[in-house]
Measured scan of single mutants.
Amino acid sequence: MQAFVKTLTGKTITLEVEPSDTIENVKAKIQDKEGIPPDQQRLIFAGKQLEDGRTLSDYNIQKESTLHLVLR
């Protein structure tokens, strides 16, 4: 499924993900596309910070959801 990641600069990245993907996995995909190390990434969805060990389905993130990427 497709999900979108919006950065603070307003850029939107499109990712191909599965509901079973972990947040860690998603961060690795963002690193592949953008070169941002996962340890600098914080992903926010519905106002919550997403934890590495959880999956997209844990957070009820469905296709075409938009996550927000904040860098630390």
Rank of each mutant, 00 (worst) to 15 (best):
I36E: 02
F4P: 02
K48G: 06
P19W: 08
N25Y: 11
T22S: 08
P37Q: 06
K33V: 12
N60T: 05
V70R: 10
I61R: 02
A46P: 01
R72P: 12
L43F: 03
F45I: 04
L50V: 04
T9E: 13
V17Q: 00
T66G: 04
Q2L: 15
E16Q: 13
K29E: 02
E16L: 14
T12R: 07
E34G: 06
T9G: 13
Q41G: 03
N25H: 12
S65L: 08
L8D: 13
P19R: 07
V17Y: 04
E16A: 09
V5K: 00
L69K: 00
T14Q: 10
A3F: 14
S20P: 03
I30A: 01
K33H: 10
V70H: 11
V70Q: 10
D32V: 13
I13K: 01
A28F: 12
D32M: 13
T7K: 04
A3M: 15
L8W: 15
K63L: 08
N25P: 00
L15S: 00
Q41V: 09
K27A: 01
E64W: 11
P37N: 07
K48S: 08
Q2T: 15
D32L: 13
K48M: 14
T7P: 04
A3T: 12
T66P: 06
D39Q: 12
L43N: 00
K33E: 07
S65Q: 08
L8M: 14
E51F: 07
Q40T: 08
E34K: 05
T7G: 06
L50W: 02
L69Y: 01
G47T: 04
T9W: 15
T12V: 14
I44D: 05
G53Y: 11
L56H: 00
K11C: 09
Q40A: 10
L15V: 09
G47F: 05
Y59W: 02
K6L: 11
Q2E: 08
K6E: 09
V5L: 05
L69F: 04
D52V: 05
D52N: 11
E51L: 11
Y59A: 02
G53F: 11
V70G: 05
A3K: 01
T12K: 06
P38M: 15
E51W: 06
M1Y: 12
R42M: 15
G35C: 05
Q40E: 12
L56S: 00
N25M: 15
V70T: 09
S20D: 11
N25Q: 14
A46V: 06
K29W: 04
K33F: 08
G53V: 06
F45C: 04
M1G: 04
M1D: 03
I13V: 06
I61D: 03
Q49V: 15
D39I: 10
K29P: 00
L8Q: 14
F4H: 12
P37H: 12
R72K: 14
R54W: 11
T14I: 14
M1S: 04
Q2F: 13
V70C: 09
R72I: 14
I61M: 06
A46C: 10
K6I: 14
D58N: 05
N25G: 09
Q2I: 15
E64I: 05
S20N: 12
S57K: 12
G53A: 10
Q31M: 13
L67P: 03
D58E: 10
N60F: 08
Q49G: 06
V26L: 10
G47L: 03
Y59P: 01
K11Q: 09
Q40W: 12
H68R: 07
F45R: 03
E34N: 10
N25E: 12
L50F: 02
V17C: 06
E16D: 11
K11I: 09
T12Y: 09
G53S: 12
I30V: 05
S57F: 10
L67Y: 03
L69H: 00
Q31R: 12
H68P: 02
G10L: 03
A28W: 11
P38C: 09
D21W: 09
